[in-house]
Nucleic acid binder design. Sequence first.
RNA 1: GGAGGGCUCGCAUAGCGGCCGAGUGCACCGGUCUUGAAAACCGGCAUACGAAAGUAUCGUGGGUUCAAAUCCCACGCCCUCCGCCA
Length: 419
Amino acid sequence: MIDIKFLRENPDAVRASQKGRGEDVLIVDKVLAIDEIRKTALDAFETIRAEQNLLSKSVASAKGDEKAALLEKAKALAGLVKEADAKRAQVEDEAKALIMQLSNILDPEAPIGKEEDFVTIEHVGTPRVFDFEPKDHVELGKLLGAIDTERGAKVAGSRSYYLTGAGAMLEFALINYAIASANKAGFTPVIPPVLVNPAAMEGTGFLGQAAENVYHLEKDNLYLVGTSEVPLAAMHMDEVLPADKLPIRYAGYSSCFRREAGTYGKDTRGIIRVHQFDKVEMFSFCHPNEAKAEHQRLLQWEKDFLNAMEIPYRVIDVASGDLGSSANRKFDIEAWIPTQKAYREVTSTSNCAEFQARRLNIRFKDADGTKVVATLNGTLVAIPRMIVAILENHQNADGSVNIPAALQPFLGTTRFELV
RNA sequence: GGAGGGCUCGCAUAGCGGCCGAGUGCACCGGUCUUGAAAACCGGCAUACGAAAGUAUCGUGGGUUCAAAUCCCACGCCCUCCGCCA
C-alpha cells in the first residue's frame, strides 16, 4: 500500500509511476478525491460522536424530569450518530480498497517499458561450445533416471513431474548447499507454513493482479503460497521490531504452488514451468535507508550461487511494466540454457521498500519513533530451473552429467551416470 | 468430529451496563536517599490519526442500548477432556 500522506504531497510522482508500469493513472485522482470525502466524513462523525458522549454523560448524572428530557434528546441523536458512522465506515472502506490497488512507486532507476525493455547489467561466464549435439533436460532426465514428466502428468496432470534417483539427490544437494551457505552468511533458516490466511496473501500483494495464479482452498479459506516470501513477510505482521535487530534475514525453504493460468502453450516441455516446486528464498527486513544496498547484497548472494554452479548467466534490470505490484525494482538472473540457445530466468530479487510492510503493519522502533520497515526478497535457488541449467550445461556426449565442485561434497560423487 | 474453559495496557490479574482508556502487582524509565548498589519513597510508563481540542482501540466482525471491556450473535485463536489419525 502506498502511504496516503506521500500521495497527497506527491501526486505527480505516483501518476508517473503508475504510467511507467502501464497501469491505471486516473486512480490517483480517484484516491485523492475519496480521501477528501473520507476526511469530511470522519470529521462529521467525530463531531457528532463527541456531542453524544457529552450528552450520555449528563444522562448518567441527571434525575427525574431532567433525565427524561435528556434521554429524549439522546435518543434522537443516536440515529444520527449511527448514520454518520456508517457513512464514515463505508467511505473509509472505499478509500482503502482504492489505495490498495495502487502498485509500489517505481525506483527512478528502474528501466521504463514493457517486458522486453529490460536492461542487461552484465554477462558472467560464456556459453559453452559443444562438440556434440546437446540434449535437453527432458532427455537427460530420462537417461539419468532423474525426471519423470510422463508419470507426473498421469498422476497430477500437466506441469507435474517426479524427481527420482539422481534428480531427487540433486534437489537435496542443492537445498543443503543453499541453506548451508545462507546460514553461513547470517540468514536464519526457516521452514514456513505453505498454507496461509488471506491477510498474509493480501499483505504481500499476491491477491491483486497475481490472484489468478494462486491456489485457494475455499472450504478453509486458506491459500497455497507461490513462494515462501509470503509466510516469511507475514511472519512479523503487526509487530514492532527493535531497530538494533535489523536487518533480519531469513532463508526460507518451502514448496511453492502456482496455477500458471494464462501460460497455455508456454514452456510445455519439461520442468521449466510447473505447478509445484521447492525453493530456498532469501528474505530481509531492513531500515528503509538500507533497502537499496540490501538489494545489491541479495543480488550478490544470488550471483555467488550461480557462480558456484558454474553456469553462465546474465543479470537484467527488469523493466517497469514487468515488475510485480510490490516491487519498486527487480533484478533477474537468467541462466544460459544450451538447447534453447537463450538465457532463462532462474532467480529474481525484488526491493519492495515499505510497500509490503505497510500492508502487513511491520514497523521498527528507534530513537526517532516508530516507522515502517523495508522488505526485500530474492531467490537463492528454485529447484527445477536450477536442475535444468545444471543438466544441460554440464552434460557429456553420452548423456552423463558432471557435478559442479560445490555440490560434490553433498552428493559424494563427481558425475551422474546413465541408468 | 464432540464437550467444556479462556482471550483486558510488556507479563500476571481486577473489572460483569454510565464515575473505565481502564485499578493493582511485577517488569521498565527518571528522580530522592547511598561511597556504590539493594531496599524504601516520589514521578513516569499503550497505539493510530490530528496543529490542537478530540476521536478510535479491552481477540475480530456484527447487534441491543441514550450509553458496552461489561449483554446478545457469529467467527478466529489458545487451553483441558473424549474420539480419530501421521
